[in-house]
Amino acid sequence: MTRVPRLAVVLNRLQLASPILVASGTFGYAREMADFTDFSSLGAVIPKTVTARPRIGNPPPRTVETASGLLNAIGLDNDGLAVFITEHLPYLVELPTAIIANIAGHSLEEFQQMAETLDATQGLSGLELNISCPNVSGGIDFGTNPTMAGQVVERVRQATSLPVIAKLTPNVTDIVAVAQAVADAGADAVSLVNTFHGMVIDWRRRRPVLGNTTGGLSGPAIKPLALCATWKVANAVEIPVIGIGGIATIDDVMEFLVAGATAVQIGTASFYDPGLASRLVSDLQTCLRDLGLDSVGDVIGTLELPESSAAARS
């Protein structure tokens, strides 16, 4: 008997139909992807980060390709929360998938106010807190300080009953400490990683290529780094982990799930293969069926360490 494997995953209060999500900043406001994507197959769509007030973004060039990677410094170009609610949210919440708004605040108060405002809207399934954008100056760098990161989550939890995901930066000495802090503060899940600080120089002109001088690196180039961070955090904290970083194939998805991720986000790959995320959902079905498994849960966190390396780590 062939059963269709179950893809539904539970991330504390957040229940998703599939573990394949699309990452904020790589999927526009979903409208842009409508020609290429079957939204109903996705676990959730996370639209581009919204800030309290409009942001013009960084001067171009905003992206430059690197070896198997993409360096970006968009600078959270967006029209602000009010326009997000009037122009984008009505379209988003009608889509046949969960919508998780991604917000970035300049202060604890701003995070709290944005969460309150969005709590009053209809149709959202959760909030993802961008405490990790590397391309924005002026705000407090919440994501690099465990105490501050925990405070953001605490304030947002007070402001809304929506499930809360904290999106973490890898640009820290100890990502586990930040993950632990947001878990203690009541985050339903952590998503990681955001981009790695990077730089490209046009040495002949003695100038940085990006208008913002530095940017964040994403794409297949960072996958092993992201996978390692996912594995470390999944082993250390109680709340579910959403793996992000260079995922572009079903093997990548399976690696993250085996490492302990309960779900994954497809990011940069949507830029060069906009139909990828929905295809990965059916690839995952096929893969689980071929393995004879009933549910995606049977794969999550199944990494086995050889005796010797397990001993070496203890």
């Binding site: 290429f36 968009i74 830029f271």
Partner: peptide, 16 residues
């Protein structure tokens, strides 16, 4: 002719 990462409006890099 602006450098683009995606071409369909998702990335916000080809701004002018």
């Amino acid at each position: 002719e602006t450098p683009m990462a995606c071409g369909f409006g998702a990335c916000f890099s080809c701004v002018t």
